[in-house]
Design a protein around this nucleic acid. Structure first.
Lengths: 327, 327
DNA sequence: TTGAAAGCGCTAACAC
DNA sequence: GTGTTAGCGCTTTCAA
């Protein structure tokens, strides 16, 4: 930067102003600074900026790349952060690097807040971090004190799925759950409640799963082993619905003629023409925006009370659901 | 850090040594430093380290999260980098953020080299970056000067697939290609060459695709519109094989009884029990290790000549391929 | 084995 | 509009 300043014949401070788009430099100076920078191949040094600035304006994002819906959210965090004047630093949760380490890295790089997307964090570890830095968790497994949460009203989403199927005339509606995974408990409870409300309590049938494709495939095998299939299945997420759907197809079961299937997440998977899954939509862009907003409220507006932000999902009806066979 | 030093009653320099595991501090001092750090909740500041250190020892990784195989590689980069004493900085290529910007960010954070995973970079832009910093591209679309490349011998992989199918007795073996996507050209050429070598030139049949699930589904529809299906299809990657497979299944075609299908990448998708795709394996861990190695050779060993590292893939036979119907 | 001092590249606060 | 100064938190070099 001093090279640029020397070349233009002004002080470093002025060059700094220009690069930060701050007022206080004439249009002509700006022009000359940019030109000199171009000629010298100058690029601002993030390490030095980070060190010197009072605020880093960086949002740390902890994520896993395994769930398609999480990928959508990560993508959506970028524009949301920029809107509020923040940068994004990524830290991947991978097998060879614990969550602890990933968080430490974000903190060492001066992230002012941490947004956690779809990890199975221990409430214990999280609470320790939340003491020092605002933490926003998206679709968490469990609640932790001091942490903001952005999640969808999962019970509501499943209720919409049951309503839709009941309206089509289904009665034997099973649920493939997600065990201890994020949101699974509420989805399971929502399923039970909705079934009861429709007077279908006796048809309640829950198969255990864990949101993976294989657990969907496993459930399909179990269903096939029984004399009679349910006429509809609500899966805990799209991935397990995918396993369920394809395994049934391979066994010669037609969807939706023989069995209707509903997924959850409305991920890219659900939208594929050959999957074409009726699914409960959680809008990634909205989730990302609210998560960033929650962080910004703590950072810029001084909020200290925890927030629990609940979004209402919507059912997207596609080709995997239809009326049951007339039997 | 000065707090820690003051607390222990030593100089900052000594504390620094201890934290970097450098020799030159007594065991007792180390112990006391760590304890004081713990008590004060001290954490090294990455920005300051980055600024002051002669070398950042950071490897910038540019990636997209859309292809399952790329995710595997990103994961594998972490241990590979650590092995060579480097850290990893991530920068996602997402729609709202051009490649240019993503690279700038990595460079601003002092990445000493850039590893690019599965993006469709313009050779032009890349060459400019490669002038300043070592760049390693994994499975690139096109070659650029000054850039190291790690890729698999795609022609070889497809040849193995054709050999496998021919051995099973297939003759009408079609190829679903990947258009201009990374490796697609070589896979297409490999298919043609292998078909000719088996005397099956007249059966050469190429369907155009772009590695997406939908292009696989589209190809399936085209195949179904014809009188006769080929007895086997080699897809350009697992995603398009997935679209192809499931669309055929939905149309009542049995796999592998009616049609055998081979994928490419051996991604997690291929391994799912209900997909169970014979696929060409590119070992993610090996690819990552070689990419890191290439960067390290430039950085630490002073290599300046470009390297083109070609890995031989292996065919993993699963349930999607079998002998053709006796006709 | 330890300490003192300088300075990485930038921004903030103030003066002109 | 522009310049001066100090210093962010650490590592490096040199001396003790």
């Amino acid at each position: 930067m001093s090279d640029v300043a020397a070349r233009v014949g002004v002080s470093q401070a002025l060059v700094s102003l220009v690069f930060r788009n701050q007022p206080g430099a004439s249009a002509e100076t700006r022009e000359r600074v940019f030109q000199a920078a171009e000629e010298l191949g100058y690029r601002p040094d993030a390490a030095a900026q980070l060190l010197r600035r009072t605020r880093s304006r960086q949002l740390g994002v902890l994520f896993t790349m395994r769930h398609p819906h999480d990928v959508d959210i990560v993508e959506a965090v970028y524009p949301a952060a920029r809107k509020h004047g923040y940068n994004v630093v990524l830290s991947a949760m991978v097998a060879t690097r614990g969550e602890r380490q990933a968080v430490e890295e974000l903190l060492a790089l001066r992230s002012e807040a941490i947004i956690i997307i779809g990890t199975e964090s221990s409430a214990h570890e999280l609470a320790a971090v939340a003491g020092q830095t605002p933490v926003v968790e998206i679709n968490p497994t469990a609640r932790a004190a001091g942490v903001d949460v952005v999640r969808t009203a999962d019970g509501n989403g499943v209720r919409q799925a049951v309503d839709h199927l009941a309206e089509l005339g289904h009665r034997a509606i099973a649920h493939l759950d997600g065990g201890v995974m994020p949101g699974a408990g509420e989805r399971r409870r929502g399923y039970r409640a909705a079934m009861r409300r429709h007077g279908l309590a006796e048809h309640i049938q829950i198969h255990s799963g864990d949101y993976t494709e294989e657990s969907g495939a496993q459930a399909a095998r179990e269903l096939l082993a029984h004399d009679e299939l349910p006429t509809a299945v609500i899966a805990g997420n799209d991935r397990s619905a995918h396993g369920l759907l394809t395994t049934l197809l391979r066994a010669g079961v037609r969807v939706p003629e023989d069995v209707s299937i509903v997924g959850y997440d409305d991920s890219q998977l659900a939208r594929l023409s050959f999957i074409d899954l009726t699914s409960v939509r959680q809008d990634a862009a909205e989730v990302a925006e609210l998560a960033v907003q929650a962080a910004v409220e703590r950072l810029d507006d001084g909020r200290t009370a925890d927030r629990d932000i609940v979004l209402n999902p919507t059912l997207v009806v596609r080709g995997s659901t239809g009326p049951p066979r007339a039997s």
